[in-house]
């Protein structure tokens, strides 16, 4: 479903990604982990072209999205993204946040969008907040709305960029629970995270990045118990 080959990204002189090659299958839940500055987020942001790769290729459903003239909007329609800092639209209510893109991008009628939106808001457990503005919500609630907003486009792939890193500890679980539910529906998910237990429990595959290099990839159980590289060992010693 997603295939990157030799994916590289440089900012000025700073080489952030140094040739990442990997394959993510349909319905797979992939946790991307590694120390800060390892290029995890940049890798994720390349997948929906929020960052333009410097070199290398990304194929999604066998379409090369890094080939010269591509319709970025069309690619992004199919890829939902959830950000660390939510980025909800502050001047719109919860329902408006969720229904805006389906109406604008997929030309759904207001009625259809509202029906879909209410269903998704119910799914993340925020029906009573439908008409609230984002600044009335807690961090955990904001992130759940952000997930509903991304799902409203009915994407095939969901990207999560440290979705719980900006949350107070007591709100992490509610967001992870929503993500767990989502994982059971067969959604293809790529998650940059520091929640090792979540990665261990939910992910089908772990990608371990360090210094812009994909050091290790594989089954979470193996990775967390018997990492192959010393870098991964060091990292796990520090975070577990």
């Amino acid at each position: 479903m997603i295939n990157t080959s030799n994916l590289s990204k440089t900012f000025g002189k700073n080489e952030v990604l140094k040739g990442i090659s990997t394959t993510i299958k349909h319905g797979e839940v992939v946790a991307v982990i590694g120390p800060s500055g390892s290029g995890k987020s940049t890798f994720l942001r390349c997948l929906n072209l929020l960052e333009q790769p410097t070199s290398g290729e990304i194929h999604i459903n066998d379409i090369n999205i890094t080939a010269g003239k591509v319709d970025k909007l069309k690619i992004r329609k199919n890829i939902g993204m959830v950000f660390q800092h939510f980025h909800l639209f502050p001047h719109m209510t919860v329902l408006e946040n969720v229904t805006y893109a389906p109406q604008k991008v997929k030309n759904l009628s207001k009625q259809e969008a509202n029906r879909l939106g209410k269903e998704l808001i119910a799914k993340v457990g925020l029906t009573d907040k439908e008409d609230a503005y984002p600044n009335r919500l807690s961090g955990g609630q904001k992130q759940r709305v952000a997930i509903a907003r991304a799902l409203a486009m009915e994407p095939e792939i969901m990207l999560f960029d440290e979705p719980t890193s900006a949350l107070d500890p007591e709100m992490v679980k509610e967001v992870l629970d929503v993500m767990k539910d989502l994982a059971t529906t067969g959604m293809t998910m790529v998650i940059v995270t520091h929640e090792m237990n979540f990665a261990k429990e939910v992910a089908d595959k772990v990608l371990f990045l360090d210094g812009g290099v994909l050091m290790e990839e594989g089954d979470p159980k193996e990775f967390f118990t018997e990492p192959k590289t010393s870098r991964a060992k060091d990292f796990l010693d520090k975070v577990l």
């Binding site: 992004r76 980025h87 001047h91 805006y100 991008v105 991304a150």
Partner: peptide, 27 residues
């Protein structure tokens, strides 16, 4: 306006004109 607003709109596939008109300019 926070750059994240642009990114959120872009990630949803919102065209530039709609993003400006409905997301960025009102804020």
């Amino acid at each position: 306006v926070d750059k994240g607003q642009t990114e959120a709109a872009e990630a949803l596939g919102v065209p530039y004109k709609s993003m400006m008109l409905n997301i960025i300019l009102p804020q």
